[in-house]
């Protein structure tokens, strides 16, 4: 019983670490490579994207998931909300941004991604 309880506590610890404490370090740089953000199975891939500060940029999205949740992507800081058609790539224009991290997500925040502006 002792072992099971310990296992349970370890599991809880792992959940806390995996979902909350772990900070992904790698971000894909949109300046050096042409990227398409694939929207499928509950995630944006890649979900951490580096973009240049102080310059207008655009990101290309391609939705492969039929769920209505995935159909809209929001950039709340910039008042952008765009429909993503299924299986058709779509360019989303972003204004020039000041350095920082900005979230983009679906209306329910189940899909989330981060723009790293530097």
């Amino acid at each position: 019983m002792m072992i099971i309880n310990l296992l349970g506590l370890v599991l809880i610890g792992l959940i806390i670490w995996w979902f909350w404490l772990y900070k992904p370090a790698k971000a894909v740089d949109s300046r050096s490579e042409n990227i398409t953000i694939i929207v499928n199975n509950g995630v944006y891939q890649p979900s951490r994207i580096k973009v240049a500060a102080g310059k207008k940029t655009s990101l290309q999205f391609l939705r492969k998931d039929g769920s209505p949740c995935a159909a809209t992507v929001l950039f709340p800081e910039f008042e952008i909300s765009e429909e993503l058609p299924l299986d058709v790539s779509r360019n989303i224009d972003l204004p020039s941004m000041s350095p920082g991290e900005y979230l983009f997500h679906c209306p329910m925040k189940m899909y989330t991604g981060t723009l790293v502006v530097e």
Partner: peptide
Amino acid sequence: KHFYIGAWKSFINHNANMD
């Protein structure tokens, strides 16, 4: 299938959702 794939994909991205 979509629940399990979605759950796994989210998991490896340190994300958790309804799936």
